[in-house]
């Protein structure tokens, strides 16, 4: 379970998070929506300790993330897969080496046969052909790079998956493929997921609950039906651009 309580974060004069309360229950997928630059990625990075809050608490599995010592934090991070917005693949390594780096179990890292099989398994899970393993990130399309990023994130068999804009910059076909992948991974691996996104349609499709980050706080959080029923002006304004989609999704 991930729990953020009254989290504040500012960069210089800019207040990004101003008292965020956010909970993700075991096994559910939560989509975190919001306008560009509102602090969605910053909030996500609090969950695996890449950013520490100025004040407030961040708990994952009951552990206070900002207060964990180095080894405990490494151990926790090995249970949290993080999919970066632009893939963040190591460009000097092949796809195979990138995914292999995601295998975090110390006992398995030295076992070559296990690692080879695990890498192939992960590439297969994200629907990438086996030959992709020998390519380098520069040889891949945007959609493939995102899928390699996902393969690396799941290589360590995580309990949690944090997706930072997994469909941004992709055409609708590739965005659909990624959405289906998020659902497939939730169903096949049973992971708890947080999906940061701009994509309203995709979010309504993949998420059990939806949260809207607005002016540094969580403006609304609930099931897709609860969010649709919201009469909050800020919520309505955010969804206005996707209004037809919103209504379509509402049936």
């Amino acid at each position: 379970m991930i729990k953020l309580i009254n989290v504040h974060k500012r960069f210089g004069e800019l207040v990004v998070l101003d008292g965020v309360d956010f909970t993700v229950n075991q096994g559910e997928t939560v989509a975190l929506l919001g306008t560009s630059g509102v602090g969605k990625s910053v909030l996500l990075k609090h969950m695996n300790g890449l950013i520490h809050p100025d004040s407030g608490e961040v708990y994952v599995d009951g552990l206070s993330v900002p207060h964990l010592r180095r080894k405990a934090l490494s151990k926790l991070r090995s249970r949290i897969g993080y999919v970066f917005q632009f893939g963040a693949l190591f460009d000097s390594m092949s796809v195979r080496e990138n995914v292999r780096l995601g295998i975090t179990d110390q006992e398995c890292i030295a076992d070559d046969a296990y690692c080879r099989n695990r890498v192939s398994e992960c590439l297969d899970l994200v629907n990438l052909p086996a030959g992709t393993g020998d390519k380098y990130p520069a040889d891949l399309s945007g959609g493939m790079r995102k899928r390699v990023g996902i393969a690396r994130a799941i290589a360590g068999q995580p309990t949690y998956l944090l997706y930072d804009e997994p469909t941004s910059g992709l055409d609708p076909v590739n965005a659909d493929i990624i959405d289906k992948l998020v659902i497939k991974l939730r169903d096949s691996l049973g992971v708890t997921s947080v999906v940061v996104s701009h994509d309203v349609r995709g979010s309504f499709r993949v998420a059990d609950r939806i949260a809207l980050l607005h002016n540094g706080t969580i403006r609304t959080m609930g099931t897709p039906d609860e969010v649709r029923a919201s009469t909050d002006v800020a919520v309505l304004e955010f969804f206005e651009r996707d209004f037809e989609t919103f209504l379509d999704a509402a049936g």
């Binding site: 151990k75 991070r77 949290i80 970066f84 963040a88 975090t104 690396r152 360590g156």
Partner: peptide, 10 residues
């Protein structure tokens, strides 16, 4: 974000 990625892999 490659350095962040490395850290996020523990």
């Amino acid at each position: 974000e490659q350095i962040d990625a490395l850290e996020s892999l523990g």
